[in-house]
Amino acid sequence: MIEEKPRKKRKAQVAKQDCVACGCCTKVCPKGAIRVYKGLYAQVNEGLCIGCGRCAAECPAAIIEVVKVDA
């Protein structure tokens, strides 16, 4: 029997309540997977996010983390 490991994928996660909606993250995302929603906070499109972490490194408030999620 082949044992299947649960696959984990890396995704960017924004702490919405702390986001200042400056949009720095949107400028560095290679996939266009993050955008500022109505001037409120940054929103990640998990389908497009490849978990590269560029947005997390760019965020001036340092409120984006790359986390492992179940695929």
């Binding site: 200042v20 909606a21 409120l40 001036p60």
Partner: peptide, 25 residues
């Protein structure tokens, strides 16, 4: 000291525009 656009985090204009956006939503 910090990241390039750290000013954006506490910029009064940015805080105001976010407040307006919140009120609108």
């Amino acid at each position: 000291l910090f990241r390039p656009r750290s000013w954006c985090v506490y910029c009064p204009m940015g805080t105001m525009t976010q407040l307006i956006s919140r009120a609108r939503s």
